[in-house]
Simulated scan of single mutants.
Amino acid sequence: MMTITPALVKALKVLGLSEYQAKVYAALVLLDQAQAKEVIELLGISKPSVYESLDSLDDLGLAVRISAKPAVFQAISPEIAVKILMDTHTRAGTSALTELQALQQQTFSGRRSGRLWAMYGKENLDYKIDEMLREAKESVFAVISDRYLDLFKQIAGRGLQVWLVVISEDPEIEEELHTLFCGDHEEVLVTSPMVLMIPLTTDPDLAEMTDEFRFSNQLDLIVDDAEALSVPPIETDLLTGLDSQNRTVVLLAKNRNMMIWQMLQQMVKEELSTGDDRDESMSPLSD
């Protein structure tokens, strides 16, 4: 006979069952239908725990009592059971999020705009970037590594004012971006890490640290001139960003990005004015 694995019990607990409920439900699936004493013999747990779990599984709709005397229980199909548990999870998550957001507004009302929020890990940062871009109403100003590009594709063609600097060494990315960001208010520049290193190497202290720069992590994002998210271009084991709605922080971030934008545009103009072939390390995608 197959055994009930710890992995199964753990998964059912994540979906909201207690350990005893998980084991008893699994036992009913294994036995097809059973009296309490059969479940007790199979699992080796106390009689009160089994009876309590059977009653609660019945209440949850995960098991049905098919006979009263003696009491015989049968598990509903695993497909339906998992759907019930996942639907319950989803409703609980929605309710919890609503309540937590209400608490957050009460706690930080009038003060949140002055705070800097640290965010850790690629998954959390990707979620935040996606949220900011989905909620953008007027403008997006960003300097990003191409590792984030898939998240930014959603803003193309939405009528937003877009200024986007993409750091990439992929020679095919220019054509893709030219096709994607073709709106009247969408401007894109593609550059390489090498170009962004040029102003850094003029500072002796920074020049000694060039090995620690990782432009593949770089992200500076300003949305609607109201919120800024920044991930520094440094080597790190855990991707880390700073998010703020502080007006001063947002304007400083925008000014920093504007300086990069203007530097790249000036380099393009100087290159074109010489009549030389365009350097593949930097390509403008707007007229």
Results as ranks from 00 to 15, higher is better:
188 V>G: 05
203 D>A: 02
170 D>I: 04
149 L>G: 07
224 D>P: 10
128 K>W: 08
94 T>Q: 12
167 I>P: 01
121 G>W: 08
224 D>S: 08
100 L>E: 13
118 A>R: 14
107 T>H: 07
99 E>P: 00
164 L>T: 04
163 W>E: 13
132 M>A: 06
128 K>V: 14
201 T>P: 00
96 A>Y: 11
178 H>R: 15
228 A>F: 08
156 A>Y: 04
189 L>G: 03
225 D>A: 13
169 E>Y: 01
135 E>V: 01
189 L>T: 07
149 L>K: 09
161 Q>W: 04
225 D>Q: 14
176 E>R: 13
123 E>N: 09
119 M>L: 15
111 R>K: 12
183 G>Q: 12
210 T>P: 00
134 R>V: 14
214 R>E: 14
225 D>F: 08
100 L>G: 01
157 G>N: 03
167 I>G: 01
149 L>Y: 11
207 A>W: 00
194 M>W: 08
172 E>H: 13
144 I>E: 05
151 L>D: 09
113 S>F: 06
145 S>M: 08
215 F>G: 02
158 R>T: 04
172 E>C: 03
128 K>H: 11
186 E>F: 10
190 V>P: 06
157 G>W: 03
139 S>E: 14
155 I>M: 04
102 A>Y: 07
93 G>R: 09
124 N>I: 06
202 T>V: 00
170 D>L: 02
140 V>N: 11
219 L>E: 07
150 D>M: 07
141 F>S: 05
218 Q>S: 14
144 I>V: 15
178 H>L: 13
164 L>G: 02
177 L>F: 07
152 F>Q: 06
222 I>S: 11
147 R>S: 12
132 M>V: 00
205 D>Y: 09
160 L>T: 09
169 E>T: 14
209 M>W: 05
203 D>T: 03
110 G>A: 08
210 T>V: 13
216 S>T: 12
118 A>M: 09
213 F>Q: 00
185 H>A: 11
185 H>W: 04
131 E>M: 06
92 A>T: 10
200 L>N: 01
211 D>F: 06
227 E>P: 00
221 L>C: 12
128 K>A: 14
197 M>H: 02
96 A>H: 10
129 I>C: 11
196 L>M: 10
222 I>Y: 02
188 V>C: 06
109 S>Q: 12
194 M>R: 10
103 L>H: 09
101 Q>T: 12
156 A>N: 04
208 E>M: 12
160 L>G: 07
160 L>I: 06
200 L>V: 00
220 D>F: 02
124 N>S: 15
92 A>D: 12
182 C>A: 14
220 D>Y: 04
188 V>I: 15
201 T>L: 00
109 S>E: 12
192 S>A: 15
164 L>R: 02
127 Y>H: 10
185 H>F: 09
130 D>I: 07
152 F>D: 05
205 D>M: 09
216 S>L: 00
121 G>F: 08
125 L>E: 06
95 S>Y: 06
181 F>Q: 03
95 S>E: 14
225 D>T: 11
162 V>R: 08
139 S>R: 11
129 I>F: 08
119 M>Q: 10
134 R>F: 10
158 R>M: 04
163 W>F: 11
128 K>L: 14
186 E>H: 11
216 S>H: 03
135 E>M: 05
228 A>N: 03
225 D>R: 15
177 L>E: 06
184 D>Y: 03
